[in-house]
Write a protein that binds this DNA or RNA. Structure first.
Length: 112
DNA sequence: ACTATGACTGATT
DNA sequence: TAATCAGCCATAG
């Protein structure tokens, strides 16, 4: 597997603040991998637990959960988000909860 | 080498 | 608002 790409995706996801959400495509873009939204999903699945990557803060572009409604994973995600104050309405987050990173700061932290 | 797969997207209906 | 569809493209096997 392409470890370096996954690393960048993980590092980028790590920048999402608690209480905010981002889309798969958004993370891909910020990680320097435009058009690779699906790769983000895969990378999150492979993320080492000790890295504590906030996978639950990543949603689809329409702000809905990527998992089937009612599934165990979806419920866990909803729970995690609720803890951070992100309320889901029909499995959908509010626009104001979407992360809008300061690009300058992000670039500095990720130093790509 | 191939190819099926998918935690996705945007456009269209 | 919601469902469908074609396009997407690196990865895994």
């Amino acid at each position: 597997m392409s470890e370096s790409k996954y690393q960048r995706i993980w590092q980028t996801a790590l920048q999402i603040p608690a209480g905010k959400v981002a889309s798969y495509g958004q993370i891909a873009d910020l990680a320097g991998l435009p058009g690779r939204a699906r790769l983000v999903g895969k990378a999150l699945g492979y993320a080492p637990k000790e890295l504590e990557v906030p996978w639950f803060r990543i949603l689809r572009s329409d702000r809905r959960l990527a998992f089937a409604p009612g599934s165990e994973t979806a419920e866990e995600q909803r729970q995690q988000l609720l803890i951070e104050g992100v309320i889901l309405k029909n499995y959908r987050a509010k626009p104001q909860d979407v992360w809008q990173p300061d690009l300058g700061e992000l670039l500095f932290k990720l130093n790509y």
